[in-house]
Design a protein around this nucleic acid. Structure first.
Lengths: 113, 113
DNA sequence: TCCTTTGTTCAAAATTTATTGAACTATTGA
DNA sequence: TCAATAGTTCAATAAATTTTGAACAAAGGA
């Protein structure tokens, strides 16, 4: 991990909610949750926006402590910080991901994968 | 209920998260949750901001479907839409309210009540 | 009726967020 | 080494959100 990540106790609830209160980022997190264990690269999310815009949203997710981003050669591997989030805010991620499953935009994504 | 409220299925997850991703509104919801069953008036929240500003934040909460506001004489009674939220997003409100209990700003509020 | 209480609406200003394109860095493979 | 790949940074713009004060409205009590 060479990129700046907040430590588990630096993760703020209000910030996590604010960052997830955006369709694009919510869709990204839903996708990560449905593919947990599999590290995703930024390119996986190109259907959600331009490369530049994704860079912005993915940085927001990382800075909020929601995702972890590790460099791997020329790409970056993104994973959900599941255990940190669960320890810090029990039940929150699960309830969000479950509820996000019903969002149209995510339905579409699931069919394609 | 003479004020406009969204119906249960008009409540959007992203919007709920966005609206709760704000310290002031999160504090208000934490307060409502700790006093569930007791309807609160807008004035109860004056320590969180100016009257005008609270009017804005409380409208946001109502429009997002998080609270219900009923007119009662010269004041308004505000309650959490607990059952609608629980049905729509199981576990979400509880996990948020539980996590919000550890937020400093809310600690202060609890002592004063 | 008049005053007080409770809270709103409006418009302006301040602040924050999101989106874009151009230029750039770093790594990998040929 | 050279070109392609993956993604970033920067500056500018666009858009949405917050905050404020002044003026307003409606109900209740003296």
């Amino acid at each position: 991990m060479s990129l700046p990540h907040p430590t588990a106790d630096q993760i703020s609830l209000a910030n996590v909610l604010a960052v997830l209160g955006d369709q694009t980022r919510l869709a990204i997190v839903g996708y990560l949750a449905r593919n947990e264990g599999v590290a995703m690269s930024c390119g996986q999310f190109l259907e959600f926006g331009s490369k530049t815009n994704l860079s912005y949203h993915l940085a927001k997710l990382r800075e909020a402590g929601i995702t972890s981003t590790e460099m791997s050669g020329t790409s970056r591997l993104i994973t959900l910080r599941r255990s940190d989030l669960d320890r810090r805010f029990p039940g929150l991620l699960d309830s969000i991901v479950t509820a996000a499953r019903d969002i149209p935009q995510l339905e579409r994504l699931r069919e394609e994968s």
